[in-house]
Write a protein that binds this DNA or RNA. Structure first.
Lengths: 199, 199, 199, 199
DNA sequence: CATGAATGAGTCTTCATTCAT
DNA sequence: GATGAATGAAGACTCATTCAT
C-alpha cells in the first residue's frame, strides 16, 4: 500500500473516511481501539480496512505520517519568518495544538519501525533544524540546545496535561510557556548531559 | 489487599516476585502485557496472580501505589532540607529516576479510579506542596507556578526521552535541567493560562 | 439477533447448525455445556458462536424462544378444535413431547430476564388461555384451575421421568395421564392454596 | 469417607457445619456453588472440605443421602398409620416440604452414580412401598399406579412451582393436591404406558 | 472493489484439587 | 487435623486477519 498507484474515486474517499475514523477512535480509546469500531465509524465493512491498509499497524503508521507531514509543512512555512524566536514558539504551539486535538503519542512507538514514518520524520527533523538554526543565530535560543532537543520537547506540554482528568482545553499553553522559558538563553544553567544524536 | 493480615513467608515472597515481574513486563510491553506473561516471568502459575491481586487492574493499581508512596517518602524526607530550591530539584530528580527505571505512566490512567491510588496520590500532593511552598519562600521558584504545576511536570523529562529508541541512561537529566530552568524565577515570562486546580 | 436483517445463505446455515448443536449439548450436559463444545459439535470455530449470539446467555435465550414460540403455534392451531378437552390434552402432549426431545427446562431460569423470552412467554400464556377457557366452558376442566396452573404443570410429566436413568421413550405419557386426571372436574377435591398470578 | 470410623469431636462438628453450609449454598446458588464459598460459610478453610469429603461430588452425595434418609424415616414412621390414604398424602407433603426448603433436585443427577445414594434410595423405595401397598389395600390409590410412580411424582409439586419467579411459600400444596387427585381411584382413566421398573 | 462471515490464537478470570506449613 | 497458598485446566469472550460471496 506504499505504492502511489492512483485510486478510484470512491476508494480514495473510503481511505479518507477510514483515516478520519481511525484518528477519532484512537484518540478516544487509545491504541487498543478495535478495527471493527473504526470500520463502523467510517461506515464501511471490516474487510475494507484491510484493503486499504495492510494491517492495523500500517493504519496507525499512515495516521502518524499524516500528522508528521503536516508539522513539516508548518515548519517550512515558518522558515523565513522575520522573528526566528517567535517562529520557533509558533511552531511548538502548532505542534502541541495538533497533538492536543488528536492524542496520538502512543501511536508513535507502535509505528517506530515503519520506513514511511522514519522518512517523514527525517523530513521534519530537517525542517525543524532550519527553524532552530535561525533561532540560534537570532539569539532566541540557549546555545547548548539542539534541534533534537526541541524535537523531543515538542510533545511534552500536551503530555503533561494528559495526566489531568479534565484539563482546560488550552492548559497546555501554560506548560509550553514554562518549557520555552527553559529554552531561552537568559538565566540558562549548564546542562548535565550531552545532547542526543539521532541514529 | 490493603489489609494488614500478615502474609506467610512464601506467599509474601511470591507477591513480591509478582510485583517485580509485573513492573518489568508492563515497562516493556505497556499496559497490555498479559497476566500469563507476568506469571511466567515471576515463575508462578497464572492462578497465583489472582490469589494475590483481585484483577489485572488491581495489580496495576498496586504497582502504581507502591511507586507513588515511594515518592511521597522522598518528598517528606526532603521537607526540612536547608536549601529548598535544591531540595525541590532533588525530588524531581528522584522522581524522574524512579520513573526512568520503571515506565509506568500509562498505568496511571488505568488505575485512576482506584481509591487506593487517589489516596496515596493525595498524600503525594500534600508532601510535594510543602516542598513547593518552601521553594517559593526561598525565592527558588517562579511565583506563578503551583504545586500542581510541579506535579504535572514531574514526569515530563523521562517522557521526552522515551521518544528515542535507545536513549542514554541519564539523558532525562538534560531535560529536567531545561524544564527546571523554566521554573526558576529569573527570566520568567508571564504564563498564558491559569494554573489548574485538582478536583 | 431478533432484527430482521436478511442473513446470507451460509450464515443462516451456520446459525441453524449452532442452534441445533447447542440444543443437543445443553440437553446432554445441562446449562454448563461449554461454548467450545457447542462450536465443535456444530463444526464451526468458537468465534462463530459469538458472531451469531452476543453471549452464551443470548444463545440460551434464543433456544428457549424458539421452543416457546413453537408451543404457541401449536396452541393457536388447537384453539378452534371441536373438542376443547381433547385439544387441551393434545397441547399438553405436544408440549411434553417437545420437551422430552430437548430437555431445556433448566434453561428457562437462565434466560428469565431476557425481554425476548418474556415476550414470547406472554404470547404463549395468551394462546394457552384460550385453550383453557374453552375447556372450562366445555366442562372438561375442573373449575378451580387456571391457565397459569396448566402452564406450570405443562413440563411436569417429562420432569418426573427425568429422575430415571433410562426411561422408556414415551413413559412421560403415563404421568401426563395421571396429572390430566387430576385436572378433570370429576372427583376433584378443593385446592388448599389460591392460584398464582403472573407478575 | 464411607467408613464409619469415629470422628474427633471437633472434626465431627466441622463436618456438620460443612454439610449445613453446603446445603444453604447449593440451595441459593445451584450446583455451581463454589467449594470456596461453602468453606467460608462454614467458617473453615478450603482444605478442610476435602479432608471431610473426597470431592465436591462426594459432598453433594452426602447431602442427598441425608435428605433421602430423612424421607425414609418419615415413611417408616407413617407405615402403621390408621388411615393409609392420609398417610401417603402426608408423606408426599413432607417430601415436598423438605424439597421446598432445600432445593436439591439438581443434585440428584450429580450423585446418581454414588453407591451410598443408590443404597439409601433403595431403602426409601422399600419404605415407600409399604405405604403404597397399604394405600392400595385401603382403596385410597388407583390400582394401576405403583410405588415407583409415586416415587417419581414425589418431587413434581415443588418442581412445578420453581418455574415461578417468586412463588408463594406454600403454593406447591396446590399442585400436590391436583396430582394427588390424579392418583385417586375415582374418575381414573386408563394409563397409556406401563409402569417403569427400577434397574 | 466491497462485504461481512469465519477463524483461532489470545485475554482475563474461576475453581476444584493438592500439599507444604 | 486444619490451613491457605499454589496449581493448571477450563471457561467465556475479543479481535486482527483471511476469504468466499
Amino acid at each position: 500500500m506504499t505504492s502511489t498507484r492512483p485510486l478510484r474515486a470512491d476508494a480514495a474517499r473510503n481511505r479518507d473516511l477510514l483515516l478520519a475514523a481511525a484518528e477519532s477512535e484512537f484518540a478516544e480509546r487509545g491504541a487498543s481501539a478495535s478495527v471493527a469500531d473504526i470500520a463502523r465509524r467510517a461506515g464501511v465493512a471490516k474487510g475494507t480496512v484491510f484493503r486499504h491498509f495492510a494491517s492495523k499497524e500500517d493504519l496507525i503508521a499512515s495516521i502518524v505520517c499524516k500528522h508528521i507531514t503536516a508539522l513539516t509543512g508548518i515548519a517550512r512555512r515558518l522558515s523565513d519568518a522575520t522573528d526566528p524566536g517567535a517562529a520557533l514558539l509558533e511552531f511548538l504551539t502548532a505542534a502541541a495544538d495538533q497533538r492536543q486535538r488528536h492524542d496520538l503519542t502512543f501511536l508513535q512507538s507502535a509505528s517506530e519501525s515503519d520506513p514511511r514514518v522514519t522518512q517523514v520524520r527525517d523530513e521534519l527533523h530537517a525542517a525543524l533544524g532550519t527553524l532552530v538554526d535561525r533561532a540560534h543565530r537570532a539569539g532566541a535560543l540557549r546555545s547548548d540546545v539542539t534541534e533534537t532537543d526541541v524535537f523531543l520537547l515538542m510533545c511534552a506540554p500536551v503530555h503533561v496535561v494528559e495526566n489531568l482528568a479534565a484539563p482546560a482545553p488550552l492548559l497546555w499553553q501554560r506548560y509550553l510557556a514554562i518549557i520555552f522559558d527553559g529554552l531561552r538563553p537568559d538565566g540558562a544553567h549548564p546542562l548535565p548531559q550531552p545532547a542526543p544524536t539521532l541514529p
